[in-house]
Deep mutational scan, measured.
Amino acid sequence: MVDYIVEYDYDAVHDDELTIRVGEIIRNVKKLQEEGWLEGELNGRRGMFPDNFVKEIKR
């Protein structure tokens, strides 16, 4: 799994989504079957977030 950095703020709409803020690092990200969404861990919580608000961290 890979990590992503947040490029744009996003406020969660549903309980299974993450609220993300610019500059945060989302860890252990995986792609979901639902197009346009990823799932990852942030601040001890796992949830979904839109893939166009983040950028993969290349290592």
Rank of each mutant, 00 (worst) to 15 (best):
Y4S: 04
R59Y: 10
L32T: 07
G36N: 09
K30I: 07
G40E: 00
D15Y: 08
N52G: 10
E7M: 11
D16C: 15
E56K: 14
E7W: 05
Y8P: 00
A12E: 05
N52S: 15
E56T: 08
E56V: 12
K55R: 14
I5M: 13
G23I: 02
F53N: 12
N52C: 12
L42Y: 01
V22R: 11
R59E: 15
D3I: 04
D16E: 11
I20V: 08
K31V: 11
D51Q: 06
E56F: 03
K55C: 13
N43L: 06
K30M: 14
E7Y: 09
I26Y: 02
V54R: 03
I5L: 11
E41G: 03
N43V: 02
I25S: 04
E56C: 12
K30E: 14
Y10P: 01
E35H: 12
A12T: 02
E7N: 06
R59H: 15
D9K: 05
L42V: 10
Y10D: 04
F49I: 09
V13F: 06
V2G: 10
F49V: 12
V29I: 05
I25Q: 06
R27T: 13
D16T: 14
P50G: 06
E35K: 14
N52D: 08
V13P: 02
Y8Q: 14
Y4H: 03
D3T: 09
F53Q: 06
L32D: 08
I25F: 03
D15R: 10
E35I: 12
K30G: 10
R21Q: 05
N52P: 12
E34G: 13
F49N: 02
V6M: 01
R21K: 07
V54P: 03
V54S: 06
T19A: 02
R27V: 11
D3S: 12
W37L: 07
D16V: 11
E35L: 08
V54A: 07
D3N: 14
Y10T: 01
V6K: 03
F53I: 11
L32S: 13
G40S: 04
E56P: 15
A12P: 03
G36I: 03
K31C: 15
E39D: 04
G23R: 01
E41I: 09
K31E: 12
V29A: 12
L32W: 07
E7D: 07
D16H: 12
I25K: 12
R46F: 06
L38S: 14
D15Q: 13
D51K: 12
R21V: 02
L42M: 03
H14D: 11
V6C: 13
K55D: 02
Y10W: 13
E41S: 13
T19D: 06
E24P: 00
L18P: 02
I5D: 03
Y8T: 15
H14K: 15
K58S: 09
Y10V: 00
I5T: 06
N43H: 15
Y4V: 12
E35T: 09
E41C: 06
V2H: 04
R46L: 08
L38A: 08
V22Q: 15
D3R: 08
V22H: 09
M48A: 14
E17R: 03
E24D: 15
I5W: 02
E34L: 14
V54W: 00
G36C: 05
K30F: 10
D9S: 09
I20C: 07
V6N: 00
L42Q: 06
R27C: 13
Q33T: 14
D15S: 11
Y10A: 02
N43F: 05
R27E: 11
L42K: 11
L42H: 07
D16F: 07
K55V: 09
M1V: 10
L38T: 04
I5P: 00
M1I: 15
M1K: 15
E7S: 08
R45C: 14
